[in-house]
């Protein structure tokens, strides 16, 4: 732990001298690039992305496939490392860490929610949620896991297997698993993508409540503008660069605002939907 601390402190001062890293930000990335070598050719997936996310924000990262949003999310989630650039998470530069240290960062600082839930087969909800605590060598795992499951409304489903839960409930288990270590950010990759609209709304309500009431910093990666409009800020990425970054004037409230028909949605997409006004849909 000590060398890690020294390392990060050094970079914090460096970052400050750059005038780049914002000490208040939970996420602060500066000039992130990511190249992949495809045979002879180098593919520039990210071409210098800089972004600050403050504590308590609720951000959507949007972009078409091939835009680099998945790569950006992998880097934000400490699952991958940038080719160049700096990434300060919770004040520590993690852009040059060993895979061992990255695993620790993922464990302590980041909660993941995936489109396909990624729950362990034949494992009870309680044990699913305990999993990150095991790798954190945490004590009191059972009660922490129970508390997390209670906060997503699954206190009656502690010993259920994934096969005994609905899609929405499975995703709520996954949210509890992401929450349980008390991470700095929650990264959700298309969290409602595999859900019907009712379950999707349920899950969305949970995310909004966690953000509103508990101030949990949440980052969504999605291609669905309707989902993005439930968050407070939308970052648009295309061809490896941020092309738009805008606050949502009045975020939709899950369960209150009804999803428009497909035709209306198409209409709204053709217009500039981001930060759009609710009157458009009435």
């Amino acid at each position: 732990m000590t060398p890690f601390l020294k390392f990060s402190l050094k970079h914090r001062t460096n970052g400050a001298s750059h005038g780049g890293a914002d000490e208040q930000s939970v996420i602060s990335i500066r000039g992130i690039t990511k190249d992949y070598l495809m045979g002879e050719e180098t593919l520039h997936v990210l071409r210098g992305v800089s972004l600050d996310i403050q504590r308590g924000e609720f951000v959507s990262i949007m972009g078409p496939s091939g835009s680099g949003k998945s790569t950006l999310m992998n880097i934000l989630g400490a699952l991958d490392q940038p080719t160049s650039g700096e990434y300060f998470l919770d004040g520590k530069d993690i852009s040059r860490l060993s895979s061992r240290a990255l695993a620790q960062i993922r464990n302590r600082k980041i909660g993941f929610v995936f489109q396909n839930f990624n729950l362990l087969k034949r494992t009870t909800a309680l044990r699913q949620v305990e999993l990150p605590l095991i790798y954190a060598n945490a004590s009191d795992r059972r009660s922490k896991a129970k508390a997390a499951l209670t906060s997503v409304g699954l206190d009656q489903r502690l010993n259920h297997l994934p096969s005994e839960l609905s899609g929405g409930q499975q995703q709520r288990v996954a949210i509890a698993r992401a929450l349980v270590t008390n991470p700095a950010i929650i990264l959700a990759d298309e969290p409602t993508g595999n859900l019907d609209s009712r379950s999707g709304t349920e899950v969305m309500q949970i995310f909004q409540r966690l953000n509103e009431q508990d101030g949990i910093t949440t980052i969504f990666v999605t291609h669905d503008p309707w989902i993005a409009r439930h968050t407070k800020r939308v970052v648009m990425i295309r061809d490896g660069q941020i092309v738009a970054d805008q606050a949502v004037a009045r975020p939709l409230v899950a369960g209150v605002d009804q999803r428009p028909s497909e035709a209306q949605e198409l209409q709204s997409m053709l217009q500039d939907a981001y930060g759009g006004k609710p009157e458009e849909y009435t």
Partner: peptide
């Protein structure tokens, strides 16, 4: 998944 939630090598 285990690696994503913090499992070490």
């Amino acid at each position: 998944l285990r690696k994503a939630v913090g499992a070490q090598h």
